[in-house]
Amino acid sequence: MTTIVQRLARKTRGFEARVAHAEALLREAAEDHAGRIVQANSLGVEGMVLTDMVARLKLPVAVATLDTGALHAETLAMIPRIEARYGIAVEVFRPRQEAVVQFVGRHGERAMYDSVDLRRACCALRKLEPMERLLQGRSAWVTGLRREQSAERRHVPFYALEDDGREKFYPLADWTEADVWAYVQRHDVPYNDLHDQWFPSIGCAPCTRAVSAGEDPRAGRWWWEQGAAKECGLHLRPEVASA
C-alpha cells in the first residue's frame, strides 16, 4: 500500500523558511510562558509535527490531549506512541462521565445525527469542558491549525490574544499539506494510522469518515450536516465561522 507520506511529502519553495519560522515562534512562546504553556495535540498529523518540534528542540511545553470517550482505536494508540518515542508524559483530559451518561440517556448514542444543536452539545461536553480543564493554569497554548485546511480557517493568524487574556499560537498557520508530510518524512514523525486510510482530518469515530480523492480535507467531518461550519468550537465558534 502506498502511504500518505509517499503520496504527499514534497519539499516546496519556502519550506525551509516556514519550518524555521515555526520553530522560532515555538521557542519564543516557550520562553515567554515557561511552565505555563501547553500544546493541545488532537493526535492528527499537525499535532504530531508540533510535538516532534517541542521534543526535538527540548522546549518546556507540556503536551496534552482530549480523550472524548468516542475516539478511534488508532487515535488512542497515538498516546503511548508519543510517550515511547519522545519520553513525554502526555496529559489526558476526559469528559465528566456523569455528564456523558446523562446526555446519552436523554438523547441516545446517535444524538449527533439528529440535529446540529445536539451535535454541538455533544462536542461541548466531550471536548469544550475538558479543554477548559486542560487550559487551567496555563497562560498560553499551541495548536496545529493551518489556513489551507478549510475556508473557515483561511485567516488563521500565527498568534492571537484570546478574550480571557490567554495567548494562542499557530506555528503551522502558513504550512501546506505538502510541508506537513515533508516534515514527517524528514524527521520520521509517527502519525495516526487513519491518515493512510484517507482520513485527512480526524475527530470522534461517529463523526469522522474517510474522504475520496479530490474531496475537501474536512469533508469527512460531520458529513451529514448541510450549511454549517465544520467546527466543534475548540478553535472557531461555529456561529462565527459560518457568518
Rank of each mutant, 00 (worst) to 15 (best):
T2M: 07
T2H: 02
T3P: 06
T3L: 08
V5C: 13
R7F: 05
L8I: 06
K11H: 08
G14K: 11
F15T: 04
E16A: 11
E16Q: 13
A17Y: 03
R18S: 06
V19K: 15
A20L: 15
H21C: 10
A24W: 06
L25N: 15
R27G: 10
E28I: 03
A29Q: 09
A30Y: 06
H33S: 13
A34I: 04
V38S: 09
V38R: 12
N41H: 04
N41K: 01
E46H: 05
M48H: 09
V49T: 11
T51Y: 14
L57I: 05
L57C: 05
L57F: 12
K58H: 04
L59F: 10
L59D: 09
P60C: 03
P60W: 01
T65E: 00
T65N: 04
D67T: 10
T68P: 09
L71P: 10
H72M: 04
H72D: 07
E74A: 13
T75H: 08
M78E: 05
I82H: 10
I82L: 06
I82K: 04
R85Q: 09
R85P: 08
Y86K: 11
I88P: 15
F93D: 08
F93G: 12
Q97H: 00
Q97G: 08
G105T: 11
G108R: 07
R110S: 11
R110L: 05
M112L: 09
D114A: 09
V116T: 08
L118W: 02
R119E: 11
R119V: 08
R119H: 15
R119N: 08
A121N: 08
A121Q: 15
A121T: 11
C122E: 01
C122M: 11
C123V: 14
K127I: 11
K127E: 14
L128S: 08
E129F: 09
P130I: 01
P130H: 02
E132N: 13
E132S: 15
L135E: 03
S139H: 05
S139Y: 08
S139A: 00
V142R: 05
T143Y: 03
L145F: 02
A151G: 11
E152D: 14
E152L: 00
E152S: 11
E152T: 14
R154E: 05
V156I: 15
P157C: 00
E162S: 00
D163H: 06
D164M: 02
G165C: 08
G165W: 01
F169Y: 14
W175L: 03
T176P: 07
Y183P: 04
H187A: 12
P190S: 02
D193Q: 14
L194V: 07
Q197N: 00
F199H: 07
P200H: 03
S201V: 07
C204Q: 14
C207D: 12
T208M: 09
D216L: 13
P217I: 02
P217D: 10
G220R: 11
W222C: 00
W222E: 02
W224P: 11
K230V: 06
E231V: 07
G233W: 00
L234D: 01
L234Q: 01
H235I: 10
E239T: 12
A241F: 13
A241Y: 10
A243D: 02
